[in-house]
Write a protein that binds this DNA or RNA. Sequence first.
DNA 1: AGAAAGAACTGAACCGGTTCAGTGAGGGAC
DNA 2: GTCCCTCACTGAACCGGTTCAGTTCTTTCT
Lengths: 338, 338
Amino acid sequence: MAVTISDVARAAGVSKGAVSYALNGQAGVSEETRQRILGAAKELGWRPSLRARSLSSSKAYALGLVVARNPRLLGTDPFFPSFIAGIETTLADRGYSLVLTVAAKHGAEEASYRRLVHEGRVDGVILSDVRTDDPRIALLLELGLPAVTLNRPTAASPFPAVCMDDTEGISSAVQHLVDLGHTRIAHVGGTQHYIHGLSRRTAWANTLKRNGLEPDLFIEADFGAQQGTEATARLLQLDRKPTAIVYANDIMATAGLSYLHQQGLRVPADVSITGYDNTEYAQYLNPALTSIGSDPLLWGSTAAQVLLNQLEGKHDGQDIILPEPQLIVRGSTAEPPA
Amino acid sequence: MAVTISDVARAAGVSKGAVSYALNGQAGVSEETRQRILGAAKELGWRPSLRARSLSSSKAYALGLVVARNPRLLGTDPFFPSFIAGIETTLADRGYSLVLTVAAKHGAEEASYRRLVHEGRVDGVILSDVRTDDPRIALLLELGLPAVTLNRPTAASPFPAVCMDDTEGISSAVQHLVDLGHTRIAHVGGTQHYIHGLSRRTAWANTLKRNGLEPDLFIEADFGAQQGTEATARLLQLDRKPTAIVYANDIMATAGLSYLHQQGLRVPADVSITGYDNTEYAQYLNPALTSIGSDPLLWGSTAAQVLLNQLEGKHDGQDIILPEPQLIVRGSTAEPPA
DNA sequence: AGAAAGAACTGAACCGGTTCAGTGAGGGAC
DNA sequence: GTCCCTCACTGAACCGGTTCAGTTCTTTCT
């Protein structure tokens, strides 16, 4: 079969233990012997068995990601594929793997984390889609599972966070609209239960207030196309109709755009709109969508790095702040109608 | 620490071996004893250690998926997230996990498969994005790694395939256009190197021939927006300009639509277009995009099932044929200009 | 010079399962 | 009554690493 540690030990004329020490860079072997052992290992083409290692060291050499989304809607979101790719760029280098779980139903999420722990599949998890008072924080603590969170949770969390603040992006979108002369700027927010839903709304509101405008045109939706349409419809029924709508993501903006067209409104002549995510198709919409472009790839690779460092006791516990997503102005924003 | 097989054996008054037999439903214990053992296990809350099992049984209890895509473009594709969710629905039920790998660079793909095998991370892999004469078939054979392929490869493959034929969808799109009166129907294809790129082109060509039309308006692109735009531009420069364009996916169609608008052409009044995938945003384009809707979720869950059955020796080797994706007619197709 | 400390390495236990050879009891055939 | 077979189960080896308690030899300190 495959070559084992015993083969290497025999070839190098030492004991199994010595080989283990040499491999892991631990004390207990002289530099000379270490080289001889590593030489023999190389010659024999030895790769230590991950399974044996896992068993004796109680480590999985893998990280987990639990995605709690309706599978049918998952394809909508441009975030995850890139984010996962980012995680992978880090893991591949470090000999770790990613175990991915999709929790469709609500109760399935907690069960997924429990299963990952009980089966010892992973050494830690990356917590995305953090919610206000996220119950998973307590769950992970109970399970004793190390983690890193995307953005700092509102609930007290002992885990390091990797933050990509959406404030600046949203603020500059709103400011951009104010500068164009808009005074009735609405926000179609995502689920406020998610901290990124909430923070986008807050950024929108704060920027309006800074400009002496009232942040009263708000409707909560769920980041999905359907509710994006409905929210847009409700805004149009108001007495105080908006001349600009800041959507919390591109898909809602896209659905809103479609609805506005159906109602005979021109974008941006009658209504300006902005999205968030800078989805690839955003630039091909008619008109091209002004959006805010984040960097999920960087977010993923950084989160994985922080978690691995944490596992190795090398992380200082500080949150990592990533560059803020930037506004990308395109054709969907213009001066308000006279 | 956690309760082990020895604890259960002691509690039930039998040996470790007996517990193992009882757990795995093997012969060697009487029904009475089996019940007693299972009872004791339940009482103690015993969960057999995946790691120990993996080591002694040489199995990983996990499947692998290697995605070879440029990470930046990965977010574009609505296929993978849903597909992965489908895989998960099957795996979660069977106690397996999914190990996901993203291979950014070209050489990284082979390395990924090798690593999964050498580290014993997975018991089998799902092969997506199958290419003509796909070199991975030989690689997997060399590595002795079981697999299932999405659609039947052109190269001889001993692996079972789970097929979702794109022929009918494309055919009915072309037929739909012919029925509307179009005679110059172009195809902007995806990479022909992928079997789904090739088969869509073939379906387009065959349907035209069946209707006595010449399939001469073909341009190969790479399934990406940029090349979708360029291909559209080239089609418009031809003497024999198309009045309809069948794109191999939605993102190219979307980019094409944008370009047509820029050129002052109206869709569908001047040019009809169709996509493929039925991305969520397709219905929100202006005009809404006629597309072909596949079912990645079903594809994923079925592929995982077939592979697991295969691993347990329960699969008969037959290919599985899934329902064909269907045409969804929307506003982007109409009669050709007079 | 003698004691103590440290470095280099060995041997065996251990992680928690699976599996196989072996044992003893019970039953059926002749 | 004897032989043989089957069934139910045990004990130990095994998977391939990690880790800890010892052993031996060298160095350092007083």
